[in-house]
């Protein structure tokens, strides 16, 4: 593949142009330039050392560079094709060099093409993996963000639930709530479901379990924030909340919890304007 090294300047600039235009200016040309020149060097060296064995040792540097490139592209929100084009554009850049129609060069080009296809597939692979990592880390963050346990009063804690409840999340909520009961020594807990868009039998089941577990530990649990539509759904589904105290709003639940823990709320007439 002497061609690659002799016509280096021409091919790389062609390549860089191709890639830059496909990315529509979302990455600066200088950056693409730097990335691709490095990649080109590594590729030439790889081809010299390892032939077309793209998964072999000779290409370890190329793979490392491609990994970095694909990761960056995935983080910056490019599509998989825009990532793979970074490699595939080299094929196009090579075409003008093949003008003299010799059979030897054509086969060499085809072999190189195969190697490049392989590398392009590799970028897509890394791209997908990076995306999956991002998604799972976001899911974990969301889980932490959405289940705070807040202290409302001495001996009263609350969990405002926001978003759809599934088994995994309810498990986290349950554990956090029960641990908070122990840590704060609270005897009253309020689960506020104002932010839960839908309640089905499974969610109700989870709520009931949490309430019973809290009761086992010696605390009382109130469910609040049941919206009218949700109340209708619950009744229509035939879910029995049994002797669990339910309130329409968090304020009502707090008042109930305070009364249970022996705090009296007094309204001063003269304090009102």
């Amino acid at each position: 593949m002497e061609l690659l090294s002799t016509d280096r300047e021409k091919i790389t600039s062609e390549w860089i142009d191709g890639v830059t235009s496909s990315l529509q200016g979302r990455i600066s040309k200088a950056e693409v330039d730097r990335e691709l020149r490095e990649l080109y060097e590594a590729l030439v060296q790889g081809l010299r050392a390892g032939g077309e064995e793209t998964r072999g040792d000779g290409f370890s540097e190329v793979r490392a560079l491609l990994t970095e490139l694909s990761r960056n592209r995935a983080r910056q929100g490019f599509t998989p094709s825009e990532t793979a084009i970074s490699v595939l554009a080299l094929k196009q850049a090579l075409e003008p060099v093949l003008r003299n129609d010799s059979a030897e060069e054509t086969t060499a080009y085809l072999r190189l093409g195969r190697a490049l296809d392989d590398l392009a597939l590799y970028t897509v692979e890394v791209y997908t993996r990076t995306r999956e990592e991002i998604i799972s880390s976001q899911a974990a963050q969301l889980m932490e963000l959405s289940t705070p346990v807040v202290k409302l009063w001495e001996g009263v804690i609350a969990v405002p639930l926001v978003g759809t409840l599934d088994s995994a999340r309810t498990q986290v909520v349950m554990e956090k709530l029960l641990q908070a009961l122990v840590d704060t020594g609270s005897e009253q807990a309020i689960i506020d479901i104002t932010g839960v868009p839908a309640v089905d039998t499974q969610v109700a089941q989870h709520l009931l379990k949490t309430v019973v577990a809290a009761r086992l530990m010696g605390a009382e649990c109130t469910v609040s924030g049941i919206r009218p539509q949700i109340a209708q759904t619950i009744v229509a589904l035939g879910i029995e909340f049994g002797d669990i105290v339910t309130k329409a709003t968090l304020a009502d639940a707090l008042q109930h919890a305070l009364r249970k823990s022996g705090v009296d709320l007094v309204t001063h007439q003269d304090a009102r304007r």
């Binding site: 349950m174 554990e175 122990v182 020594g185 379990k209 577990a213 009761r215 086992l216 530990m217 010696g218």
Partner: peptide, 27 residues
């Protein structure tokens, strides 16, 4: 009165379907 039940124990009992109906509990 059963006192000092750990969260993990409470969850286990619930999963086992035991709600200890007649037992009073405290933290």
């Amino acid at each position: 009165v059963v006192v000092g039940m750990r969260p993990a124990v409470a969850i286990t009992l619930v999963e086992l379907g035991l709600s200890l109906g007649g037992v009073r509990t405290a933290l």
